[in-house]
Amino acid sequence: MSNVFTFSIGRKLIMSLMGLFLCAFLLVHLGINLLLIFCDTTEPFNIAANFMASNVVIKVFEIGLFGGILLHIIYAVILTIKNWFARTVGYKVGNNQQTSFFSKYMVHTASIIGIFLILHLMDFYVKAKFLGGATSVTYEDGKTFHDLGALVIARFHIGWVVMVYIVALLGLGFHLIHGFQSAFQTIGLNHPVYTPIIKGLGLFYSVVVAAGFMAIPIVVYFFK
């Protein structure tokens, strides 16, 4: 077991497990963010966001999350470099039609997501946590929270920020369409009945996540 992750398939396993873990995280992230556009005030969002920032269990998950992202990236880089070395002389006529569109551009969509992730963390996570970018707000019950909602709404009133988010989230959606079902195949779960269901579920999940996250900057920009 000790050296399983030095093998191609072991490395792929890490990538797929971390990928699925990140998929689960996205759902939680999306659920909390949607509070911003479905509630009249930013209060429910602020309470949820502050809970996520202060709860001990969530803090452990937070470390796991950053570890997961890092592992996913590190193993992706290792595997991709090995893949490039596996074909040093390319074809004159490339094979372009026989695979799904999304599976061919995983490195490209990953790069978009990677760059976006840095911007996104600087925008909210770093600003609120380390730079004191969030003002305080006190609700009726006397409890005081960081006003993350106001931070988000202010940010999403800038046109170019909204555009960057839309492009990046399209990249995320494309990445997920292949990534979600691909993870199951790598783990070894391929079945004549369940694999088509997983693929359908993956498409549904990708559309929901990408469209759900995209709705937030758009709705905030136009209506909040």
């Binding site: 191609s8 792929k12 090995k82 070395f85 026989q98 799904s100 599976s103 079902q181 391929n190 004549p192």
Partner: peptide, 24 residues
């Protein structure tokens, strides 16, 4: 190289071997 589950191999295999074998 390492498989990225694109399925190009099973589409081009003259014996039409399925990538379900890769999962196995």
């Amino acid at each position: 190289g390492n498989c990225t589950n694109t399925g190009a191999c099973e589409a081009e295999c003259p014996k039409e071997i399925s990538i379900s074998h890769i999962a196995r």
